[in-house]
Design a protein around this nucleic acid. Structure first.
Lengths: 205, 205
DNA sequence: ATTTTTGTCAACCAAACGGTTAAACTATAT
DNA sequence: ATATAGTTTAACCGTTTGGTTGACAAAAAT
């Protein structure tokens, strides 16, 4: 029982499944289209992954595993809060530029089936993810470095301003009358803009 | 050819279609489930609306017509910028509290088929929606009332922080470990919080 | 060399899907 | 009363869907 051939079929399938599922979601994706994209027979999908649901689970898990570590790492470092904010917006927006379908995909599928989050969180975030951030913010508030703010709101604000522009791209680029290039540039500006905007909002001068 | 009976069937259908389409999207919605929800025979769906697509269009248009006027009105008033921001966050978050599926629905379907936005915008926003807001911001910047900021970014920031918490509710309530009630309260706090956060970020003290 | 395991494919299948039909029913107009 | 137009339903239809089967080929193991 040693490996045979180049076992790239399984990877080709997963790659194709990512493309289709992330763009069209569980409901909109078709097994035939995934097979066509992978350039293989539809039966192969069921040979390597037993069902559409199982194949979807693999894609979803892969998307989560790509995003979650980036959040945790940044939140858990010992940097100053302001630098944490700068790191987060910069790296997060860069990441989403490369994987532009992932945030919409995750949030859309989580809305379709909110129970999926449990499987994710049990393994990934054992303790409260924001406990450390919480304390850091509260200390800074007491020291007089920043205005009082609920850690929850600060976190929601940063994440919202980072992710939403990707999800609402069709809407926002139409409202703001930007073409593809202009909108991409606008988003790149936000790597720094969002961080400075947030810091300006909480800093005591 | 005068009206017969209570012609409530058509409205029952639209109401049921709103529920199903807004929660499950075009791809996930089933005509049979809409019929069951409305408590009528499936043929009635095709009798009043000719196809799934036409029925969907009616639901989508209704969602747009519910949201768009609220944006336009607030942007077009002659209030001071700060009051505009306060009005917007307050009224928008209140609105979404009552119609919690609409923002996700619109953005999800717009991602599925970005061309739909054209039909919407041609009729609704003849001129650039943000032209007025743009000038107002630029004047305030020159007068020294607020820090320099691209109107596009300010608009994206406000809209992001208002809408995203509704779209990402399953994710955020899990990360922040909030139950239904706690999360709802957190969102209610944001009616004021987002406005003051934005004002703090741009105001020169 | 041949048996066994693993991989691939075309053809097939039952269920679910959006949509149609034709007949029955209801209410108004004549 | 009867014709007429609008409304509702059960049964049906062709297509698409996720999934299966069985034959066949390619490696590995013996």
């Amino acid at each position: 029982m040693i490996k045979k051939k180049e076992n790239n079929t399984e990877k080709q399938i997963l790659e194709a499944a990512k493309n289709i599922f992330q763009q069209k979601g569980m409901d909109g994706a078709r097994m035939q289209e995934i097979a066509d994209t992978a350039g293989i027979n539809k039966s192969m999908l069921h040979y390597y992954y037993r069902s559409k649901q199982k194949l979807f689970d693999a894609v979803f898990k892969s998307a989560i595993n790509l995003m979650a570590p980036k959040i945790i790492k940044i939140v858990e470092t010992d940097e100053h809060l302001f630098d944490k904010i700068r790191s987060f917006t910069n790296k997060y927006i860069s990441f989403m530029n490369k994987h532009s379908f992932i945030p919409t995909f995750i949030i859309q599928e989580l809305n379709r089936n909110p129970d999926m989050i449990k499987e994710v969180f049990i393994s990934k975030f054992d303790d409260s993810i924001s406990e450390k951030l919480k304390k850091q913010i509260e200390e800074l508030v007491e020291k007089g470095g920043i205005k009082p703010i609920k850690p929850e709101h600060l976190l929601i604000n940063i994440v919202s301003m980072s992710i939403f522009p990707f999800m609402a791209k069709p809407l926002l680029s139409a409202v703001l009358q930007k073409n593809e290039k202009q909108y991409k540039q606008l988003i790149n500006e936000r790597k720094m803009h969002v961080a400075e905007f947030v810091i300006d909002a909480i800093k005591i001068k």
